[in-house]
Design a binder for these strands. Structure first.
Lengths: 132, 132
DNA sequence: TAAAAACCTATTGACATAGTAGGTAAAAGG
DNA sequence: CCTTTTACCTACTATGTCAATAGGTTTTTA
């Protein structure tokens, strides 16, 4: 299941795309519009900056903004960054120990096929597709 | 992510389909073949019996067996039974509180579309498709 | 220089995961 | 009948993740 980290991140991205004024948007405003705790969003947004989705600016007049055009972001990269992986099973997660049963496993191809479906779905959606 | 409950359940089903002798298969044998703790499998298999996937028989000569033909099971029903839901987000899980923001939510259609994809994928696979 | 904002570290309660432990009940074989 | 084999049952536990909260410090602009 996709957790609040991934879901809130997508909503922050949409919010920034829809409320783009050219200048920085304070997190307070995003939190108020989205009805999400500002304190919790701080943690999420910090990782989004570290992952290159957003840029932040401290001080008065500061806040956050997108660092690319909405059509240059895929939903897949947002979710994958925030959730750590899009993989459906632990054996296929990036950084997982290779499973000793992988060669004989009769279920691995199933999970791999589903993972490809998932990957193609989310990387095929652009942020701009979700902006009204 | 699909947990061991769902993954092990699918493996038990495949194991039973492949080693079908007409009589009951002891869990000890399944656990040994699959390399999974028998004690842990007990918990999982118990729920599979309760959910109507398997029938169990106590006593000497007892064990478990499928109660339908392999082509009459979908992978979707196995996973959904064991994981509680196939939903990708909490707001769409069966039994979830309806989200007050659902009407205005710009991400809900995305999750709903993905859920449909997931549902169609797993309900489109039959147990017999995974048996060698 | 004061306000507004990001940025930082730490903590918490609740729950899920992946098991382990130690039994009781049932059924068949000898 | 009795022993073995098997399912079935309740309880416990260690670890980790999730979704926040709390209380600061630093940076920047007006």
């Amino acid at each position: 299941m996709i957790s609040t980290r991934g879901r809130y991140a997508v909503r922050v991205m949409i919010d920034l795309a829809e409320n783009n004024t050219g200048s920085y948007i304070p997190l307070k405003d995003i939190a108020a519009r989205q009805g999400i705790s500002k304190k919790y969003l701080e943690i999420i947004v910090k990782d989004m900056v570290a992952g290159g989705l957003l840029t932040g600016a401290s001080g008065k007049g500061g806040g956050y903004r997108l660092c690319r055009e909405p059509e240059e972001y895929t939903i897949g990269e947002i979710i994958e960054l925030m959730e750590g992986s899009l993989a459906s099973v632990a054996c296929l997660a990036s950084g997982a120990m290779p499973c000793p049963r992988a060669d004989a496993c009769e279920t691995l191809p199933l999970w791999a096929e589903y993972d490809k479906l998932t990957h193609d779905f989310f990387y095929g959606k652009k942020l701009s597709d979700l902006v009204r």
